[in-house]
Design a protein around this nucleic acid. Sequence first.
DNA 1: GTCTATAATCAGATAGAC
DNA 2: GTCTATCTGATTATAGAC
Lengths: 193, 193
Amino acid sequence: MAATRRPGEESRTLLIVAAVEVINTEGYAALSARRLAEKVGLKRQIVHYYFRTMNDLLLAVIRHYGEEGLARFRKAFASADPLRVLWEMPADSSATSFAFIAMARHSPVIRAEVTRYLEAFRDLQVEAVACHLARHHTAIPLPPEAIVMILQSVSQSLASEASLGVDRGHEIVRSAIEKLLLFGGSESTSDGF
Amino acid sequence: MAATRRPGEESRTLLIVAAVEVINTEGYAALSARRLAEKVGLKRQIVHYYFRTMNDLLLAVIRHYGEEGLARFRKAFASADPLRVLWEMPADSSATSFAFIAMARHSPVIRAEVTRYLEAFRDLQVEAVACHLARHHTAIPLPPEAIVMILQSVSQSLASEASLGVDRGHEIVRSAIEKLLLFGGSESTSDGF
DNA sequence: GTCTATAATCAGATAGAC
DNA sequence: GTCTATCTGATTATAGAC
């Protein structure tokens, strides 16, 4: 599959990866052709060679980030308790996801792409949890959709606050959620992400 | 109290209000002196008269938005079930809060101001819920901190997705959370916000 | 594929007139 | 308080050389 790669794919991919990095570490307002070119060591006009407009770049970035994320979740779900995956995985990159959602609110064409991935993520997560609950019959009195949403949004909120240095009440929340939705602690997910 | 208002406070306040509006409807990347001046019908240099730098403006905006939000919560908690308030109130303006949090990640001076309000909001919310649980002794097996976090972050996630037109599973999640954390439905909050 | 050169627009910020 | 004028630098984007 690496042989079918067309020429020019290298710099293109470098630009996309650099864009994700800039969005995550400096915010989407800092995303510019200058900043990206600087990151990959080329002149800024190179961005317009691979992506006519910055919007085209952004769409490519969203697709790249979305596919990568879906693959990570699929892999994690296959080898670990989906509940723990949802609880522990979003921590790293939730800021990037928030940035895409924020951008989507102000551009219809970006919104279309983002919502596509939001729904794909949700479907994947709900199915994994439903499947897991069906196998191990638990005492959780909540539908899979609610479990997914609680684990993911609370986890993201905790991560978001922690990235600002705020952790008031986090330990209490963390252990309460784990007592409510996660069991025993027999399985660990410290092996993949 | 309206009599003690210094001259010049009018345009200043208009600019702050306009800034919140721009951040909410167009995103913080669209916030500029040009855009604000246009909104209040003045020339763009007026922004630098009231706020030396855009950073100063942003700090004033955060304080304005924070104080206003705290007041709204205090008022709502005084006259309605705090659980329902947390569940139903953030919907309108959660995007603005997310924007401030995103900005705070990339500027230490803004971060200091944002975290101050994050903690003030949290304290207010936890205290209101704890007080409410102490009065009406309920069967919820969760500490106030966890109840606050679940209600608020799930509510914000639902609102965030809904603003993009995504509502897959929302009804299921909504009724599950209400069954888990909200009771009877005897009291309604459809009277204030 | 990557470069130089160039265009038009917009950004924040300051000085000074009224 | 609000204005005009001005500066400096960043932005996206295109045309064309190599």
